[in-house]
């Protein structure tokens, strides 16, 4: 049996009297796409924040390739190879693509006291890394704020890959994207998997989740309702889980009734 690239063991998180996560366990193997499902408020965000070092668990353990680790900061997590692409992307709009790409890990040249940020190198690498993920930027020194949502997403993903992530966490990466760009991101998720990365993928969109995922874990009101391999679960069942247990067929019938009345 392979050692999971990342594993949460019996993790709980409390914020004061609120129990955001209760005794959740999840393991993701290298080369596996693990889809995290759950309605709003299920605890997905808290779980991601624990994995990415923003929060520390109240109870339980994080294991990286079998070794227990403690992330004191998001930087701790990225240094350990756990890269998270958040919905707000972790990019600074007023700064250039290359400056954002290397923020906190600036390549330098020259000797002290003339050590300086090697911007030419940064521009070149950032440009290449973006071409690798399929977007062509006009100029890597242009502000990130000038990019579209999909392009920003690609910058964030390209950065995570470039800095050698072993675990890639994508928090609703396709929610703000056009059809073509969403397909690009999915293709990218599969490529990451083929490279042996463990991918944790959060989405509300079943047609994005189902094709790429190997496993699904269902969260409901802060607790895990189990992990299923794709072969053990139907698309309809996943939809039911994602909608928080609501019977979508019933909702659709209701809508049709309303439309009927309106005529």
């Amino acid at each position: 049996m392979t050692t999971p690239a990342i594993e949460l063991r019996n993790v709980s998180k409390r914020f004061g009297s609120v129990i955001a996560l209760n005794d959740v366990s999840i393991a993701v193997n290298p080369g596996e796409v693990h889809c995290l499902l759950g309605d709003n408020g299920a605890g997905k965000s808290t779980l991601i924040k624990i994995l990415s070092g923003v929060h520390r668990p109240s109870d339980g353990q994080i294991l990286l390739s079998g070794e227990p680790v403690v992330f004191r900061s998001p930087r701790d997590a990225t240094d350990a190879g756990v890269a998270t692409v958040f919905q707000d992307l972790g990019l600074i709009p007023l700064m250039s693509i290359a400056r954002n790409f290397f923020l906190g890990r600036e390549p330098e040249k020259g000797i002290f006291p003339f050590r300086r940020f090697d911007l030419d190198h940064a521009n070149k690498i950032a440009r290449q890394a973006l071409i690798d993920v399929g977007i062509q930027v006009r100029d890597p020194s242009q502000a990130v704020g000038t990019l579209s949502g999909g392009e920003r997403q690609s910058v964030a993903i390209a950065r995570a890959i470039h800095f050698g992530a072993k675990v890639l966490i994508l928090d609703e990466p396709t929610s703000a994207l056009g059809v073509h760009q969403a397909a690009m991101v999915l293709k990218f998720v599969i490529e990451a998997r083929l490279r042996g990365l463990a991918v944790i993928f959060i989405t509300h969109n079943i047609s994005h989740a189902f094709p790429v995922a190997d496993k699904f874990t269902l969260l409901n009101r802060g607790t895990s309702k189990g992990t299923y391999a794709k072969s053990d679960i139907t698309r309809e069942e996943v939809v039911r889980i994602m909608s928080g247990g609501e019977d979508m067929a019933a909702v659709e019938r209701e809508i049709e009734d309303l439309l009927e009345k309106a005529r």
Partner: peptide, 24 residues
């Protein structure tokens, strides 16, 4: 404009939380 510290200055003012998260 030319140093790592300068990049951190822009980042600290641009978005301090993002900057902190990437290790600035």
């Amino acid at each position: 404009t030319q140093t790592k510290f300068g990049n951190w200055i822009y980042a600290s003012g641009g978005d301090a939380t993002v900057a902190r998260n990437v290790g600035v």
